[in-house]
Simulated assay, not measured.
Amino acid sequence: MVEIVFEPEPLPETRAAILEGLIAFNQKQTGGTQSPPRNIAIALRDPARGEAVGGLTARIGYSRMFVELLYVPEHLRGQRLGEKLMLEAEAVARREGCTGIWLDTFSFQAPGFYKKLGYTEFGTLADYPPGFTRHYLHKNLS
Rank of each mutant, 00 (worst) to 15 (best):
residue 1 M to I: 09
residue 4 I to G: 01
residue 11 L to H: 14
residue 12 P to Y: 10
residue 14 T to H: 10
residue 15 R to K: 13
residue 24 A to G: 10
residue 26 N to M: 12
residue 26 N to F: 11
residue 28 K to Q: 14
residue 28 K to T: 12
residue 32 G to T: 03
residue 33 T to H: 09
residue 34 Q to A: 09
residue 36 P to E: 11
residue 40 I to L: 15
residue 42 I to S: 11
residue 43 A to E: 14
residue 43 A to T: 08
residue 48 A to D: 14
residue 49 R to T: 07
residue 51 E to Y: 03
residue 55 G to S: 10
residue 57 T to M: 12
residue 60 I to L: 15
residue 60 I to V: 15
residue 62 Y to Q: 00
residue 64 R to F: 06
residue 66 F to N: 11
residue 66 F to K: 04
residue 68 E to G: 11
residue 68 E to T: 13
residue 70 L to Y: 00
residue 71 Y to Q: 02
residue 74 E to W: 05
residue 76 L to P: 03
residue 78 G to T: 02
residue 81 L to M: 11
residue 81 L to G: 00
residue 86 M to N: 05
residue 86 M to C: 03
residue 90 E to V: 01
residue 92 V to N: 05
residue 94 R to C: 05
residue 96 E to A: 09
residue 98 C to A: 14
residue 98 C to K: 06
residue 98 C to N: 09
residue 98 C to T: 09
residue 99 T to L: 12
residue 103 L to I: 08
residue 105 T to P: 00
residue 105 T to D: 04
residue 106 F to V: 02
residue 108 F to N: 07
residue 110 A to I: 01
residue 112 G to T: 03
residue 117 L to E: 07
residue 123 G to S: 06
residue 125 L to Q: 12
residue 127 D to I: 08
residue 129 P to L: 04
residue 136 Y to I: 00
residue 137 L to D: 00
residue 137 L to Y: 01
residue 138 H to Q: 07
residue 141 L to P: 00
residue 142 S to R: 11
